[in-house]
């Protein structure tokens, strides 16, 4: 299990488009990938769960993964959220 905390950086938060980007990215890995906010964990390979977290700008979420490529999966999702800001800004 590998996990990392990340802060939502884009101003709209995780709406449908960023959520689908996360799903797309997470689905490329064999590991089980999940997001967690306020102790509520959802599957990162499934869009509705991510949307239900209703993550806004400034919220802190945890990205975690378990499996062979767990580290790579977590790092790339963290990069998408924090550095790339979902290519929005």
């Amino acid at each position: 299990m590998y996990k990392k905390k990340v802060k939502i950086m884009n101003s709209l938060g995780i709406h449908a488009r960023p959520a689908s980007m996360i799903v797309k990215l997470a689905s490329q890995f064999d590991s089980k990938v999940g997001l967690e906010k306020n102790d509520i964990g959802v599957n990162a390979k499934s869009i509705m769960g991510i949307l239900m977290l209703a993550s806004e700008e400034g919220d802190e979420i945890t990205v975690k993964a378990e499996g062979k490529d767990e580290k790579k999966a977590v790092e790339s999702i963290v990069k998408l959220i924090e550095k790339r800001k979902f290519d929005e800004e």
């Binding site: 509520i40 499934s46 869009i47 509705m48 949307l51 239900m52 209703a54």
Partner: peptide, 13 residues
């Protein structure tokens, strides 16, 4: 459903 707001409820992907 986890979502409490009516407008966001009962959506399927």
């Amino acid at each position: 459903e986890m979502q409490k707001e009516d407008i966001l409820r009962h959506n399927l992907e």
